[in-house]
Amino acid sequence: MKKPLNQAVKTKMSQHTLSAKHLSELQQRIQTSEVRPAVNHASRFKLAGLLAAVFFTALFTAMLLPHMDAPEKQSMVQLIANEVVKNHLNLKPLEVHTNDIDSLIHYFTQLDFLLRPSREVNDFKDRLMGGRYCSLQGITAAQLRLKTQTSSKANTLYQTEYRKAVFGPLPDIDRNQKPLVAWAKGIKVRIWVEKGVLFAMTDISQTNDK
């Protein structure tokens, strides 16, 4: 199927993805290197102070850790919410306009999973407006647009293959776990996993000030 050149290039390039292993190695290298210059230029006293700070931070963290959610989980959830809201606000044109999920499945041939309605989204088929290719944390995704139930505005729903190594642990509603809620730029985002697919959806019926 022919499509505009820019969309075709975008789709082609989105197929290139760094593996979770490479991504993790690269991030580790970055974090190690970012600390190194401070150590190199530190005087002995500064170095001793730094070591003491590291020791007490580690001790403090070890004491608090059992009572906290994993920090990387928190930050990944926020990163997902930020990305979803950013693209929700950008409101880029849909590549395919349809309220038929089968037509969408037919269009999104580059995905490694099957698009599907969710139990968490009421009247999915009646509200579906269409979709476009996108990515979430670098993983190829479908960005769908759904009418809200109460206004003429629309919500954005991301679906992508759930890769635990990339996204970290997320609630699986098939195990009776509830979706996570995060906020970005005043917009609520719900995030969950269902049948091995990661869903992230804006909820513009609620804003921060409510």
């Binding site: 989105s14 290139h16 993805t17 760094l18 991504l23 991030q27 990515s135 944390q137 670098g138």
Partner: peptide, 9 residues
């Protein structure tokens, strides 16, 4: 991670 993926592409 998104920036690294974009640079990789």
């Amino acid at each position: 991670n998104e920036q690294l993926q974009q640079l990789f592409r």
